[in-house]
């Protein structure tokens, strides 16, 4: 198949995104644990197109959250290279955002003030700042909740507020670390649809870590399947289906079976076989 970009909303076409490409090459990350070096990520190579939605799935301990922390620059101690549009990543920057699993809104601030936190590094005139805030609250469907405090919001609303904050300074890349992990199943499905819409409207490159294969497939243009200890990319699955997507699509179900097989196959082979052949072709 030719590489046709998935269908997008009008906002993206206008932006005609050329920026927001992430290139990760030869990335390794080691921790010292009790004097012993632990390899968390081993030789990760991944190229993400501008405006692409990439999902990352994998068992606990495969270093997927660490990967996001490295991309946004909260952790700068690694080997290899992460580049955003040809600039090497060094430390945090407003062009790279992150949504955490817990919403991490400041409890003493209203939702609007929380969104404003993202804008404090830029010298914006007050009226422009207000407009950016209200636009992003509208984007996540929280226009009426700007004056609410985080504890007055439901879990889904708080996470949407966190997404609004993360998008407020229009990052080129948004990393999402199990953003919907703490939500109940029903809310989760709703916010997934929201997230799809937001991504289509904002046109930001998104990299989402999740435990949920359905979620990964529903949202991702590609799904990166990782294997643990050390964290490696086991497989990259293309999801060749335009957005917005239908959950009932047979393709999603077929791919889900494949990915689940990949995820469950890995440990048995690693533990059971003493000798593995790198580069051995896979069935």
């Amino acid at each position: 198949m030719t590489d046709h970009r998935p269908l997008r909303g009008p906002a993206t076409d206008k932006a005609a995104r050329r920026t927001g490409a992430v290139r990760i090459s030869g990335l390794s990350k080691r921790y010292a644990m009790g004097g012993k070096a632990m390899t968390v990520l081993d030789d990760i190579n991944l190229s993400i197109r501008p405006g692409e939605f990439v999902s990352i799935v994998g068992p606990s301990g495969c270093g997927k959250s660490t990967l996001l922390r490295l991309i946004v620059g909260l952790d700068t101690d690694y080997d290899g290279e992460i580049r955003l549009d040809d600039t090497r990543v060094a430390g945090t920057g407003l062009e790279r955002g992150l949504v955490f699993q817990d919403h991490r809104l400041f409890p003493w601030m209203t939702v609007a003030k929380n969104v404003e936190v993202a804008l404090l590094n830029q010298k914006l005139p007050r009226d422009r700042r207000e407009r950016v805030i209200s636009e992003h609250l509208a984007l996540v469907g929280l226009s009426d909740f700007g004056d609410a405090y985080p504890h007055q919001l439901s879990g889904g609303m708080a996470q949407r507020a966190a997404i609004a904050r993360a998008l407020a300074n229009e990052p080129k890349v948004l990393a999402l670390d199990e953003p919907l992990g703490a939500l109940d199943a029903l809310t989760r499905v709703k916010v997934q649809a929201e997230l799809q819409r937001i991504w289509m409207e904002a046109g930001t490159t998104m990299i989402m870590v999740t435990h949920d294969v359905d979620e990964a497939l529903f949202l991702g243009d590609r799904v990166v399947v990782m294997s643990p200890r050390p964290g490696r990319i086991a497989r990259i699955v293309d999801v060749d289906l335009p957005h917005p997507r239908d959950r009932a699509s047979p393709l999603l179900h077929r791919l889900k079976d494949e990915i689940l097989a990949e995820l469950t196959r890995e440990p048995r082979e690693d533990d059971g076989t003493l000798v593995t052949f790198p580069g051995r072709p896979r069935g």
Binding site: L74, R104, F106, V117, L120
Partner: peptide, 25 residues
């Protein structure tokens, strides 16, 4: 640390960092 990380992520300048995060927290 989770609060401080949010401040780092959005590169909060010192003055708002003190007034909006450290002080109320």
């Amino acid at each position: 640390e989770s609060h401080r990380e949010v401040a780092r992520l959005y590169r909060m300048p010192t003055a708002p960092f003190l007034v909006r995060l450290i002080l109320p927290a």
